[in-house]
Amino acid sequence: MSPIQPTQIKPKNFKFVKANAMERLPFEDNTFDFVFQRYMFTGCIKKKWPDLINEIVRVLKPGGFLEVSFRPSKMFDLGPATQHLFNGLTELLEQGGLDSDIYQKLDNYLQNQGQLENIKKEVKQWCKV
């Protein structure tokens, strides 16, 4: 998050909170009706995903809505140079303890969390240019 946040365009009932979900979010249990988390695949190591999901669910009200969004780590119909680049990136992520295929496993983490219901996974293929 940028250290400078916009002030002229934000609603009056809104404030930016900088926090680390890998430690503890600075909110009480059951605070939010809706939690949106995206692009965390480069910010969470493999073994910490269950902890991260638990922390997000902790601040979600019962009956609340959780939306998790990722850019898929598998791209389709890549040319040889792009495929080589993508393979190198995947290798770097894995060496750093990150899970380059988290989008394939996330629904299992959510199911195993135990408090979530009606889990739906939607995968969209990137457009070909």
Rank of each mutant, 00 (worst) to 15 (best):
P3E: 11
T7R: 14
Q8W: 06
I9K: 11
I9M: 07
K10V: 13
K10L: 11
K12Y: 10
K12M: 08
N13D: 13
F14W: 10
F16Y: 15
K18L: 12
A19P: 03
N20V: 00
A21M: 06
A21R: 05
F27P: 00
E28A: 15
E28F: 06
D29M: 05
N30T: 03
D33C: 01
F34R: 11
V35K: 03
Q37A: 15
R38E: 06
Y39I: 02
F41H: 10
F41I: 10
G43A: 12
G43M: 01
C44A: 04
K46C: 09
K47Y: 07
K48C: 11
W49S: 05
L52G: 03
N54W: 01
E55F: 07
I56P: 02
V57D: 01
R58G: 07
L60S: 00
P62H: 01
F65D: 03
E67M: 13
V68E: 02
S69C: 10
S69T: 10
K74D: 09
K74Q: 06
F76N: 10
F76E: 14
F76R: 11
F76Q: 11
G79K: 13
A81K: 15
T82N: 08
T82Y: 10
Q83D: 14
L85K: 11
F86C: 04
N87V: 01
G88K: 12
E91I: 04
E91Q: 14
L92W: 06
E94A: 14
Q95Y: 09
G97H: 03
G97E: 00
L98Y: 09
D99K: 07
D99R: 06
D99P: 04
S100W: 05
D101G: 12
I102N: 03
K105D: 15
L106E: 14
D107Q: 11
N108P: 00
Q111P: 00
E117Y: 04
E117R: 12
N118E: 13
I119P: 08
K120N: 08
K120V: 09
E122G: 08
Q125T: 14
W126S: 13
W126Y: 13
C127S: 14
C127L: 13
K128L: 15
